[in-house]
């Protein structure tokens, strides 16, 4: 199908590209094969703009912009790789690691973790900030899934997918600042939830070891965030995918 949307010119790191009016800098970059790292963003869900890993610079503007939550504009000159951006991205990652309890060596997601991959991508070999070591709970009351708060980075993908795609709205965010946490069923054990349909979408999209299937040992948990894009596309087009087509 030919795209008939109006376009404008933008440039990424000095190279010109055509952008669709209304799309975000991140969407445009992905389409053009330009790498901008992201964590809370997930294709198929609404934009949250919370993690700020996707920050970019726009020429002549000292403010950093989150690429996932910034719309393209005509003749925008976008920089995706500068020493300043690299420094900020690394700091953000270090803060995420310092804020929770990340012990990769004993984590279900070790080796299959978007956060760990991002640390490698951003060159984080150690954390300069003091680790907060907060006391956090593990909720394994659900028959199929486990929520380990120690690994949660508050990306809200679980909140959004359960509300927007599954329509169950089991998850919410409670408290603020360093006390913020995601909760199930208005802060009741997940296993007692009457609204959870056991669809597993929240588990599929979690970027870390915070959500996993019961019984997974170290490094055994693999997520499938791309599933949501398949569902969202199918729903938008009013199609249904043959299960055999889904990989």
């Amino acid at each position: 199908m030919r795209e008939t949307r109006p376009t404008v010119h933008v440039s990424f790191d000095g190279v010109e590209h055509e952008a669709f009016v209304g799309e975000s800098v991140l969407e445009c970059a992905r389409r053009c094969g330009v790498t901008i790292p992201s964590l809370c963003f997930l294709e198929g869900l609404t934009v949250w703009g919370g993690c700020r890993i996707c920050v970019v610079e726009v020429a002549e503007d000292h403010r950093l912009r989150p690429a996932c939550a910034t719309q393209v504009a005509a003749d925008m000159e976008i920089k995706t790789e500068t020493p300043r951006l690299r420094a900020y991205r690394k700091s953000i990652l270090e803060l995420l690691f310092a804020e929770g309890n990340h012990v990769c060596a004993v984590c279900v997601s070790n080796g299959n973790c978007e956060l760990q991959d991002m640390a490698v991508f951003c060159g984080m070999d150690h954390v300069r900030y003091d680790s907060q070591a907060p006391p956090r709970e593990v909720d394994s009351s659900h028959p199929k899934y486990v929520f380990d708060q120690n690994r949660c980075i508050l990306c809200t993908r679980c909140v959004r997918v359960c509300d927007e795609i599954e329509g169950a709205h089991v998850w919410d965010i409670s408290h603020r600042g360093e006390h913020a946490e995601v909760i199930t069923e208005l802060n009741r054990p997940w296993g007692e939830s009457l609204s959870c349909t056991w669809c597993g979408k929240c588990v599929a999209v979690c970027p870390t070891g915070a959500l996993s299937y019961q019984g997974r040992a170290i490094g055994e948990m693999e997520h499938d965030p791309a599933m949501i894009k398949r569902l969202a596309v199918a729903r938008n087009r009013g199609e249904w995918l043959d299960p055999g087509v889904m990989t």
């Binding site: 990769c104 060596a105 070790n110 490698v120 060159g123 984080m124």
Partner: peptide
């Protein structure tokens, strides 16, 4: 850089 710094 790269895999040389992966934790876990």
């Amino acid at each position: 850089r790269g895999e040389a710094i992966r934790w876990g």
